[in-house]
Design a protein around this nucleic acid. Structure first.
Length: 279
DNA sequence: ACTAAAATAT
DNA sequence: TATATTTTAG
């Protein structure tokens, strides 16, 4: 009795393109051990969920089995697009450094498919970035050098709220929307040009994710959970007993223009459009 | 659940 | 080789 039978679920097996049931398949290709998952084989790990879609569609599936693999199967690498990152930064800004922990950030972002791990990881990196940033200039703002723009192209794509830098307060949820939001850095720095270019090329890498199955799938609208509901109430003060999510109603800053997080999987090629090939 | 560090994938 | 993202460990 192969262990695989008991340890590997059919779905998992399918995902890995291995035949758990029959040992004599011979389909196993040792040479390509880490067999690329077959997207078509299973339903989406993280359903598109076009907000309204989600709620109504649930009933149809009946058993949760079909859409459960979300946790079981390996999710495609998350690509932090400038849009996503911006949302991330906004979320952190609203929460205040203090409360800006993966879980809360994730919730505020309310991006479907985004996991806590995703955020945690990004946060880790972002903190590093901020730390490095502080050493260069307290002006707080955009990247200080072209090199930074190149190195941290992603992070440079979003304005770093001043309070992030060398600021002690680290207050709780921001009552209002004090910080300049989309204000494209107006510092005499020379980044603009380079950055903008990057911004554009950055997402030149159109992903034709054959994500969904047969039909060619969707390459879009993957992560987009309902934004903070239209409930733009004026609850400014910290919520009494209610849980977290009462964060200040996302001011304009959190308005999501559009986010098109790209997840890519195998087959995708790399187009490294680096402005500065070598640091 | 959070952060830091190691491992992988691109 | 370098870096972005994931996974593991504390």
């Amino acid at each position: 009795m192969p262990l695989s039978q008991t340890l590997i679920t059919p779905e998992l097996a399918l995902a890995f393109d291995i035949n758990a049931a029959g040992a004599a398949n011979g389909n196993l290709n040792p040479a390509q051990a880490p067999a690329p998952p077959q997207p078509a084989a299973y339903s989406h790990p993280a359903p598109p969920l076009s907000s309204d879609f989600e709620s109504s569609a649930s009933a149809a599936a009946g058993s949760g089995g079909a859409d459960e693999p979300a946790r079981t199967l390996k999710r495609p690498r998350l690509v932090w697009t400038p849009q996503l990152h911006k949302r991330f930064v906004d979320a952190v800004a609203h929460l205040g450094i203090k409360n800006a922990v993966p879980k809360t950030i994730m919730q505020l972002m309310s991006v479907d498919g985004l996991t806590r791990e995703n955020v945690a990881s990004h946060l880790q990196k972002y903190r590093l970035y901020l730390k490095r940033m502080q050493g260069l200039g307290t002006s707080g703002g955009g990247p200080i050098s072209a090199a930074d723009a190149a190195t941290d192209q992603l992070f440079a794509s979003a304005p770093v709220p001043h309070q992030f830098l060398s600021r002690g307060p680290a207050a709780g949820p921001e009552p209002f929307l004090p910080y300049v939001q989309t204000a494209p850095l107006q510092h005499p720095q020379q980044i603009t040009a380079a950055m903008q270019q990057q911004q554009q090329q950055y997402y030149h890498q159109r992903h034709l994710g054959h994500f969904g199955s047969s039909t060619g799938g969707f390459d879009h609208g993957f992560l987009n959970r309902g934004m903070p509901q239209p409930a733009m109430h004026q609850m400014v003060g910290p919520p009494p007993g209610t849980g977290f999510l009462q964060l200040t109603p996302p001011p304009a800053a959190l308005s999501v223009d559009d986010l098109e997080p790209a997840r890519r999987e195998d087959g995708g090629e790399r187009k490294v459009l680096t402005l500065f090939p070598d640091r």
